[in-house]
């Protein structure tokens, strides 16, 4: 146990230093993921055009929703599929495989520590957004903020496991990264970064409930904006834990099967 903690601590500090060397790139990636902000502009214009509110959302409701969505999207972003694909196909996985630690943890710590490099920039943009649209407020209640921290961390871990599983497909296909792009396209429309899910046709809302997508952005956003009550928060955390379990199993299975094939791609 103590040695596991020590491993985590060392990996975190070293990867934090590593990621800090890439802060300029991180800012660019952050700005590139600005779709929720564009959608915020479109929906605000729409609410204004229809006389102050559309579907029960006022301009400042939209601002709060999309700012929270932007924040969540920044927290859950994962590029490990691309990284793994590269490692597997170029053979860089080999040195990592020969260490007595599942390479998963190193990738995971790399991503987790990167969040903390992002943090100051995220807060700056968040506050700029809150000031730019008058009357916009996120929840002032400490309980909701804490619940959001839990929801967002779980969402990040689920997304990371999805990306990791997709990346592991590089053991079988040349095009694992293309599959991750599919994920991005689907996520852009189904996680809630395009519009609050209540604007979607009912059958899509019902179908999406059975996927992890709304639990990555939509529900965490409801927690941060204060729209979710305690029973809803508990339900969201429960479903997220279930998805976490499912993806952990999927990843473990792909990892076990994939290793048998490693090297056949010329590593």
């Amino acid at each position: 146990m103590r040695s596991a903690l020590n491993k985590g601590r060392v990996l975190f500090t070293v990867w934090f230093a590593h990621m800090s060397a890439y802060r300029a790139e991180i800012i660019i990636w952050m700005l590139a993921g600005s779709v929720p902000l564009i959608m915020m502009a479109v929906w605000i214009a729409k609410a204004q055009a229809s006389g102050g509110a559309t579907g029960g959302f006022t301009p400042s409701d939209f601002a709060a929703y999309f700012l929270a969505a932007w924040l969540t999207q920044q927290i859950i972003v994962a590029w490990v599929a691309w990284e793994l694909d590269h490692h597997i196909r170029q053979g860089h996985l080999s040195p990592k495989l020969l260490r007595p630690l599942d390479p998963f943890w190193e990738f995971f710590m790399g991503h987790a520590s990167e969040r903390f490099v992002r943090l100051p920039f995220m807060l700056v943009i968040l506050f700029a957004g809150l000031i730019l649209v008058p009357g916009t407020r996120l929840t002032p209640d400490a309980g909701h903020v804490l619940a959001y921290a839990a929801c967002a961390s779980l969402a990040f871990t689920i997304r990371f496991l999805i990306a990791y599983s997709i990346g592991l497909l590089a053991f079988w296909f040349d095009q694992a990264t293309a599959l991750d792009e599919f994920y991005y396209v689907a996520a852009a429309f189904l996680t809630g970064t395009f519009a609050p899910l209540e604007f979607y046709p009912p059958f899509i809302q019902a179908a999406v409930e059975w996927t992890p997508f709304p639990y990555l952005v939509y529900y965490p956003v409801r927690v941060l904006t204060g729209a979710a009550d305690t029973p809803e928060i508990l339900r969201v955390l429960g479903v997220q834990l279930a998805w976490l379990l499912v993806m952990t199993l999927v990843r473990a299975l792909l990892w076990k099967q994939g290793l048998k094939r490693y090297g056949a791609v010329g590593a």
Partner: peptide, 17 residues
Amino acid sequence: GSLLGLTVLYGDGQPLG
């Protein structure tokens, strides 16, 4: 996905800009 997005945006039947 883009078409789905448009359907959502035009859900209230109002023109967009």
